[in-house]
Design a protein around this nucleic acid. Structure first.
Length: 736
DNA sequence: CTAGGGTTAG
């Protein structure tokens, strides 16, 4: 001992200042333990030295409980705890329930749940405090099945739960699927006489709310004699979680009337309700309240506010919140990304997602879902492939939501075959997955495949839903299958599905396009619900195709009365007149539009070259390679003429919807995009173009021929569907 | 030693 360097240094060692905190004398072994915790870097050699010592030096007057409990509380690492535990064992006081409970709680706090369990298992006869500690640990880390398992074991061993056990058990019940367990616990709570314990009762309320049994939650809540802010919050969030934000808000009002002051958790729930109803004004007033009550520094409250602003379309405000957050957590990232995606800021959403990845920030399935949705909006097949590739390497490959979104994304990015690949590689398919694929085929006019898939779906025992039928009807529509569509529509009732506006509009479209205008009209007249914009719009568009002026005017009238400021309706009617060469009425519509201050939508086309999107509008000369583009355009025009192409001049010339033709050269935006695509990609490369309006008949015919002349596949996504041009024909069969 | 909250939604 004399030679020990420790003795030489002990006077000056900071340990002595630490010792003065404790009221009792301390042994060398204790010294070593403290050292190892407070000064891990220097402790090893001391521990080694003392490990050969016996513990005869211990003073029996020493107050173990307070000394070790302080040590445990000061532990910041698992190794601290294991050393203390070893020490307790060495001292023979490892059956001290108080200290072991503390140890377990401390382990839980450090996230060392399996270590906590190990310590628990080594304890011979745990009392209710120990059981509570371990159940609490499992519940805290959402290991609900373990929590319930411990709860059951505890009762087998005749340890009765107390008022501290039950809230954790209830939380676990709420987190598990099914609610039988929770119901049993509720019965037990009643028998054990906890009906006046506000902690326990709040847990019961929250449990029922989580399981969707909001009525039961309300019954328990109403039965409470004393309600604190937690009781109210449980009820508010319960309504929110069950899609009843209005009710949630009225509970909040009630709470305010009874004079209970909301804390930040309560406000988070209220903000969520405002977010759900997209009520920006009231959301803002809650924001004001947050500032007034001095809670604006509460990070989670700021996250809820960010989500609210993002979802309500105030993405700039949301972004400034986001940027101010020192440590943005996953939920905040998700709120921001989904907010962008939801409000049409698809590029921003994707950019933020990429930022997460390049900074190695953890993503979850919600992040990925939102990002995929954003990619679908962007419409770039290269981006879509990148996303698919990323997911293939992630842990989200089996996420049914992610895969359905991927199917939708590939379909919307023009590659329905890749959508099918995702579909085929997903083993567990639900209705939504099947429907997404059917909708994808519908979008591309592949009616046969959609119908075949529907058969397979039924064979697989999956029951169709309203979206399935929407996809099927669209598919029939885009491939001219009137009979199939008609039958499918009528088979909806066999599955107990009530058709909605969109289904009716599809049928009107289906009948109308095929020329059955009278039938379409009768169909509308016999609809059980009031026909809306989509239905009349479908009829008007069919009247335009078949030049049925009187019926078209009738449909337009209905549209004007429903939406008097929607430019599209005027344009459609004008197109109908133009197709019937009624130029005076075309002019009248123009005057009418001018009077109402409406102007037609500007057409533009996007083409992706080397992963970059290039935009063109009609007659666009702003591109740096504009000269080359127009040269290519002229050469195309020449070759078209040589091939015998005669432009339609009757309707499209006066078609307000489409960009006007300039002299002989057609400079519609998609033609510019095609020309640019041709000069900037290798021969044979597929061109992928996105257009915001519907393709005009002239460009459609021209594109067919161009695909043959230049031997390229050209994929055009217009406002309505996809067109695949190849070898002089289009996948839509000129039916769109 | 207790309880209540937020991101998504094909």
């Amino acid at each position: 001992m004399a030679s020990s360097p420790f003795l030489l240094s002990k006077i000056s060692h900071p340990f002595y200042s630490l010792c003065s905190l404790y009221p009792t004398k301390i042994t060398l072994l204790d010294f070593a333990t403290v050292l190892s915790i407070k000064f891990p870097a220097t402790s090893f050699k001391f521990l080694k030295h003392f490990s050969s010592n016996d513990n005869s030096l211990i003073f029996h007057t020493f107050n173990f409980d307070s000394f070790y409990s302080n040590l445990i509380d000061n532990s910041t690492q698992k190794t601290n705890l294991t050393q203390i535990h070893a020490k307790l064992l060495l001292l023979g006081i490892h059956q001290n329930g108080f200290l072991i409970t503390k140890l377990i709680n401390s382990a839980v706090k450090l996230g060392e749940i399996s270590y906590a369990r190990k310590v628990f298992d080594e304890f011979p006869e745990p009392d209710v405090y120990l059981w509570n500690a371990i159940i609490r640990g499992y519940s805290k880390y959402n290991m609900f099945a373990n929590a319930i398992e411990m709860y059951s074991t505890m009762q087998v061993l005749w340890v009765s739960p107390d008022g501290y056990t039950l809230p954790h058990v209830l939380k676990a019940c709420g987190g598990l699927p099914g609610f039988e367990m929770g119901r049993r616990v509720h019965g037990q709570i009643f028998r054990l006489g906890f009906e006046k314990d506000v902690f326990v009762q709040n847990g019961v309320v929250a449990f029922y709310a989580k399981c969707g049994k909001i009525a039961s939650a309300k019954v328990v809540f109403d039965g409470l004699k004393f309600r604190n802010v937690v009781s109210w919050t449980s009820m508010i969030s319960g309504y929110s979680q069950n899609g009843l934000p209005i009710e949630a808000l009225s509970v909040f009002d009630e709470m305010r009337e009874t004079g209970v002051m909301p804390d930040w958790v309560a406000l988070v729930s209220v903000i969520r309700a405002h977010t759900d109803v997209e009520d920006l004004e009231h959301g803002k007033s809650i924001h004001g309240f947050v500032i007034k009550t001095g809670l604006e520094l509460e990070p989670d409250l700021l996250i809820a506010l960010t989500a609210m602003y993002a979802k309500c379309g105030q993405v700039m405000v949301a972004r400034s919140f986001f940027d101010q957050m020192k440590v943005p957590n996953l939920i905040l990232w998700n709120a921001m990304i989904s907010g962008y995606a939801k409000n049409g800021y698809a590029e921003e959403a994707v950019e933020l997602f990429r930022e997460m990845i390049s900074n190695n920030i953890r993503t979850d399935s919600i992040t990925v879902r939102s990002a995929v949705i954003a990619c679908a909006q962007v419409g770039s097949i290269e981006l879509a492939r990148w996303m698919d590739n990323y997911i293939g390497k992630s842990e989200h490959t089996d996420d049914i939501f992610v895969n359905s979104a991927l199917i939708d994304m590939f379909a919307k990015c023009g590659n329905v075959d890749m959508a099918r690949m995702v579909f085929d590689r997903t083993l567990d398919k639900d209705v939504v997955m099947w429907s997404a694929m059917i909708v994808g085929y519908g979008l591309h006019g592949r009616g046969r495949e959609a119908l075949d898939l529907y058969q397979l779906m039924k064979q697989a025992g999956v029951c169709p839903n309203d979206v399935t039928f929407l996809g099927l009807l669209t598919a029939c529509n885009h491939s001219g299958r009137v009979e199939d569509g008609w039958q499918l529509f009528h088979s909806m009732k066999d599955y107990g599905i009530e058709p909605c506006h969109q289904h009716y509009a599809c049928v009107v479209d289906l009948l109308g396009r095929a020329g059955y205008l009278d039938q379409a009209y009768d169909f509308i007249m016999n609809m059980p619900i009031e026909p809306g914009v989509s239905v009349w719009g479908a009829l008007l568009s069919a009247c335009k195709i078949h030049r049925h002026v009187t019926l078209g005017e009738y449909a337009a009238e209905r549209l004007f009365s429903l939406e008097s400021y929607n430019t599209g309706h005027y344009v459609q009617l004008s197109n109908l007149y133009a197709s019937s060469r009624m130029w005076d009425r075309v002019a009248k519509i123009r005057v009418l539009m001018r009077e109402k201050g409406l102007s037609k939508d500007l057409g533009y086309s996007l083409i992706e070259i080397n992963g970059k999107l290039q935009a063109f509008c009609v007659g666009d000369k702003s591109h740096p390679r504009s000269k080359e583009i127009y040269e290519e355009l002229e050469s195309l025009e020449r070759r078209l003429k040589q091939a015998g192409f005669i432009p339609h001049t009757d309707s499209s010339l006066h078609d307000l919807n489409y960009e006007e033709i300039e002299e002989t050269l057609c400079n519609h935006s998609e033609r510019l995009a095609i020309a640019f695509g041709l000069i900037s990609t290798a021969p044979g490369t597929t061109l992928r173009i996105t257009k915001n309006l519907r393709a005009c008949i002239n460009c459609h015919s021209a594109t067919k021929l161009i695909s043959k002349l230049v031997n390229r596949e050209i994929v055009v996504r217009d406002a309505n569907r996809f067109h695949h041009f190849k070898d002089g024909v289009c996948s839509c069969g000129d039916y769109w």
